[in-house]
Amino acid sequence: MKKFISWNIDSINAALTSESARAVLSRNVLETIKAENPDLVAIQETKLPATGPSKKHIDELEKYFAGYHIEWVSSMPPARKGYAGTMILYKEGMEAKKSCPRIGAPDTMDDEGRLLTLEFDDFYFVNVYTPNAGDGLKRLKERQEWDIRYANYLSGLDQIKPVIACGDFNVAHEEIDLANPAGNHMSPGFTDEEREGFTNLLSKGFVDTFRYIHGDVKDVYSWWAQRVKTSKINNSGWRIDYFLVSDRIKDKVVSSGMLDSGERQDHTPLSLEIEI
């Protein structure tokens, strides 16, 4: 059995090198992840430069993940510096082939380090940081195109071998996936267009492992707004982070859920255990 963890860290540099109260909470989350002894950790929104993690970053990461390989992809010109970015750490002894696919996404999305894939003997593992539709839905059209192309990319991999895909998908799929659906139908992450994009993805042969295991359980979320101080206290959250698997391996899923990130708002890590 393998255990995988996925977390939007919202800046590796801030988490590892800052002494702010938030950084301390981030390092507490890293300790929680370390205690899980995962086989693989997928990280989104690394916000690292094009050259990737520095020696200091790697040294700090090894305090939590000694004996892990590190693969990464960062935002590159012409995309913004220090933007988006993804990383995967996986245990030594696991053999994988890395790819940073370009899916023909619009704008600079293919240059933002949003997609990192590892090919193992029996499956593909895909880490994604899906573009946000943005304030005023200014990037919604581009986001819709991304969703189509990403779904087609996963479907193509699935024709070769089973897929495990995780990350921050920036969409609450159904009304039970956020605390206040009525007031958010025009909010980024809960528009009809984004929800349809996720439905289309699942229809290509993938399963939302959390719903597969837990059914229609409510009030379980993966993200709470930082700007609202009481969002986590009141559990006014959204479930926008996912572990998906190819439909044909869904019965191999043992558990799928969230880890406790304590007082830290923003994203909480996800955990998947699967017989693979």
Rank of each mutant, 00 (worst) to 15 (best):
G134I: 04
V220Y: 02
A35R: 14
L201K: 02
G52T: 03
S271W: 09
D208P: 12
I274D: 01
F198C: 05
F123E: 02
S11N: 09
K2H: 15
M109S: 07
L202T: 08
E275P: 11
K55Q: 11
R102M: 13
D219E: 14
C100Y: 12
I240G: 08
N28G: 14
N200Q: 11
E92V: 13
Y221V: 03
R149F: 05
S236M: 10
L137G: 07
Y221S: 06
R195F: 08
W7R: 04
T51I: 08
L137R: 07
S255R: 12
F65R: 01
R149G: 03
I43C: 01
L137N: 08
R139M: 06
E175C: 11
G262N: 07
D111K: 00
V217D: 06
S26F: 15
I58G: 03
S75H: 03
V171T: 09
F210C: 10
Y129K: 01
K91A: 06
Q265T: 07
K250H: 09
E112Y: 02
E19F: 06
I160P: 06
N152E: 15
A14T: 08
G237P: 00
T230W: 07
S255T: 13
Y221M: 03
V245H: 10
Y64W: 12
G257Q: 11
W72R: 04
N152Y: 13
K63H: 13
S11W: 05
T230C: 06
H267D: 06
K34A: 15
V126R: 08
A182P: 04
S155T: 07
G52P: 05
K229A: 10
K34I: 11
G257D: 12
D122W: 13
P49I: 01
E175Y: 12
V41R: 06
I70S: 03
G156K: 12
E95R: 13
K91E: 07
N28S: 14
Y64A: 07
G183E: 01
A21N: 15
E45T: 01
N8L: 03
R27A: 09
I88Y: 07
S231C: 05
A84F: 00
D59S: 12
D147L: 14
N180V: 09
